Amino acid sequence: MVFELVVVDVLNRFLGYYVVNLDTSQLSLGIWKGDVALKNLEVKENALSQLDVPFKVKVGHIGNLKLRIPWKNLYTQPFEAVLEDIYLLIVPSSRIKYDPLKEEKQLLEAKQQELKRIEETKQKVVDQEQQREEKQDTFTEKLVTQIIKNLQVKISNIHIRYEDDITNREKPLSFGISLQNLSMQTTDQYWVPYLQDETEKLVRKLIRLDNLFAYWNVQSQMFYLNDYDKSLDNLKNGVVNEYIVPKGYDFVFQCYGAS
């Protein structure tokens, strides 16, 4: 099926760009089977390079990534995406120790991405010409629309933190966000979760957030000075839940419970 090829291609390119040493063959196999489960993924140091910002990822971790794709029942079952334990520690680029081999590898990857982008642009031009001669309401387009209608997303345990002890060495700062749970489901007009069929045009999505916090710490502890595992533990311990609010954080926004 064309759509299966599209899903494989998109996920391979997206995850391949952001994740260290991704086994694309295993990922593709899982997608074709309809059940992808990846654990303990490390986010690349240069994952922010496309944003053209002077920051790098000191610690980047995704504990679990799960995709459930009901290829045989795409019109009657939801496409589910689950992400668990997402932790990012971002620092100024100058705080990352220069590694010539890593830098060379990253430059090569960047060149390969640029070449790929150029080829994709050329292909898009060709595809656009072909699409002018085809009907716009194709089977694949209908299928994509149906999947988006019934897409279910669940994300848990997120902590994204930025640290800076360069701008003001006397008062190192850190700021970030912490979120325990985020979920998104399709609902009916009464906000009760259910599956829409292809005839329905209006899509309603119910988004739920549990324990969302934002903080800004001055004269802050610098996690990045620790090794990778210790820094990761500190990020994990910074997630607020219904039972524990971690100490040492000056919160500027707090949302307890569900919203």
Rank of each mutant, 00 (worst) to 15 (best):
N21H: 10
D99Q: 06
V125C: 02
K72W: 03
F139Q: 13
P100L: 10
L51Q: 14
V20M: 05
Q130K: 15
V91E: 00
I69P: 02
G16F: 05
E109A: 08
D127V: 01
K105L: 07
S156C: 09
L38G: 04
L83C: 10
G34D: 09
K56H: 03
L67Q: 09
N64D: 15
L101E: 13
S49W: 02
E133Y: 10
Y18L: 08
E129F: 11
G16V: 05
L48S: 06
D127F: 01
N46D: 15
Y18N: 04
I155K: 04
Q77H: 12
Q146V: 01
K44T: 11
K44L: 07
E134C: 00
A37D: 11
T138G: 10
E119H: 06
Y98F: 13
L151E: 08
D23P: 05
E119Y: 01
G30W: 01
Q113F: 04
Q106I: 14
V126L: 15
A81G: 11
V82N: 13
L89Q: 07
S94E: 15
E45M: 12
R132L: 12
S49Q: 14
K102W: 03
Q77V: 00
K111E: 14
V144A: 14
L65N: 01
E80N: 14
T121W: 08
D23W: 08
G34E: 10
T121C: 00
V126P: 06
Q152L: 07
D137V: 02
H61Q: 03
S28E: 15
P78T: 04
D137S: 10
A37V: 08
N46Y: 09
Q113I: 00
T138P: 04
Y17T: 15
E45F: 09
V125T: 09
V82R: 12
E104L: 10
N40D: 15
Y75C: 03
Q123H: 10
V36K: 00
K149M: 05
K56G: 09
E80I: 15
K56I: 00
D137F: 08
E45W: 07
Q112R: 15
Q26V: 10
E133D: 06
V82Y: 13
G16Y: 03
Y75L: 14
L51K: 12
Q50K: 12
S93K: 12
K97F: 06
Q50I: 03
Q123S: 06
K44I: 03
Y17K: 13
Q131M: 08
G60R: 02
K149Q: 13
L143P: 00
K102N: 09
K116V: 01
V59F: 05
N64Q: 12
Q152C: 03
Q112I: 00
V20Y: 06
S28R: 06
L101H: 10
K33R: 13
F79Q: 11
L41D: 06
P92R: 10
Q128F: 09
T145G: 05
L38A: 02
K58W: 03
E80P: 01
V125L: 09
F139W: 09
L88I: 01
K135W: 01
K102T: 10
Q128W: 06
Q136M: 02
K105D: 08
L101I: 11
L83E: 05
K39C: 11
L15T: 04
A81N: 05
Q26M: 09
E42K: 14
G16A: 03
R132G: 02
K116A: 14
Q106K: 06
G63A: 07
Q113T: 09
F14M: 11
Q77W: 01
Q26H: 08
V53F: 05
